[in-house]
């Protein structure tokens, strides 16, 4: 075989490795995308194409998970805590307020019941007090509706809306509900809590935790989480994997932004 063929083969292999590397686990991030999982949008640059995307809708969260192809369970995820975001009834009360004169009696009463905040398992004492107050305002709106006092109905709904707007849960209030607690997991022995700290990530107060996940076959994977609460909405970025892919997670986290809400959804 002529000598240049070896060189050509080596060059081809190098080029192939380069191409595979670019599309693999540690290449440049993809173009940023904005996700509207909850009232507060979140934007970030997803990891390279070597990480396969999946929707993540379970355990009270809504988000997207990127699983490294051939990575043995390594993944990066960004999620919003839908279960807490849905406790905020501002949107439902405002919608009822704007449509109250267009609704039939049955529709009005149905929307009124949907506007009521949950009273069970409150996030905090502040939230419990707010929810009780809104229920009282909506009870008054119902009785004024039945007595035909439309002006009073509007005033009651406005009072409920003002009360709902006065409360937004904080990171401190939500953290006990959302941080990793091995005793709450199905297999507590798989988790080792490591370095936990209050910090600032992408310019916002955050709680970060560098833990360890011990897989059933004994492999120890890094399990890093970052939590934020922005305008009352909680978010989490998670890395589960080996140290050589940690940089990709850090780059995804650094790309996270919480833009102003824009109406793009068509539901």
């Amino acid at each position: 075989m002529p000598r240049f063929s070896h060189r050509a083969l080596a060059a081809a292999l190098a080029a192939t490795a380069l191409v595979l590397g670019c599309g693999g686990g540690n290449g440049p991030l993809l173009r940023p995308e904005t996700f509207n999982w909850v009232r507060q949008p979140v934007a970030f640059a997803p990891p390279p194409s070597g990480w396969e995307r999946q929707g993540d809708n379970g355990g009270g969260t809504l988000g997207v998970r990127f699983i490294l192809r051939g990575g043995g369970g390594q993944c990066i995820s960004v999620t919003a805590f839908r279960q807490f975001a849905e406790r905020d009834r501002r949107e439902a009360i405002a919608r009822l307020l704007s449509r109250r004169d267009s609704l039939t009696k049955r529709e009005f009463l149905e929307e009124l019941s949907l506007a009521r905040p949950r009273l069970d398992d409150p996030i905090s004492d502040r939230e419990a007090a707010m929810a009780r107050g809104i229920h009282q305002d909506l009870d008054r709106a119902a009785s004024d509706y039945f007595s035909g006092s439309k002006g009073f109905v509007a005033a009651d709904l406005e009072a409920a809306l003002r009360r709902a707007a006065q409360y937004e849960p904080t990171l401190e209030e939500l953290l006990p509900h959302i941080r990793l607690r091995p005793d709450r997991m199905q297999n507590p022995e798989w988790w080792r809590i490591g370095h936990e700290r209050d910090t600032v990530v992408v310019g916002l107060p955050a709680f970060a935790s560098d833990d360890t996940l011990i897989t059933p076959d004994g492999e120890r994977l890094l399990y890093h989480e970052v939590f934020w609460v922005v305008k009352g909405c909680a978010f989490k970025a998670t890395f589960q994997g080996r140290r050589d892919n940690l940089d990709t997670f850090h780059r995804v986290v650094e790309s996270i932004q919480f833009p102003e809400q824009v109406v793009v959804a068509a539901r």
Binding site: N36, R53, G55, V64, A265, A266, R267
Partner: peptide
């Protein structure tokens, strides 16, 4: 469960169409 990813006006033989691309609201897939 879907949202608009892209929306544009498109002139097709003189008719003003609105062309839309939607994607899954959660995963953008």
């Amino acid at each position: 469960r879907r949202e608009i990813a892209r929306k544009e006006a498109r002139d097709v033989h003189g008719a003003d169409w609105v062309a839309i691309e939607t994607w899954d609201r959660v995963s953008h897939m």
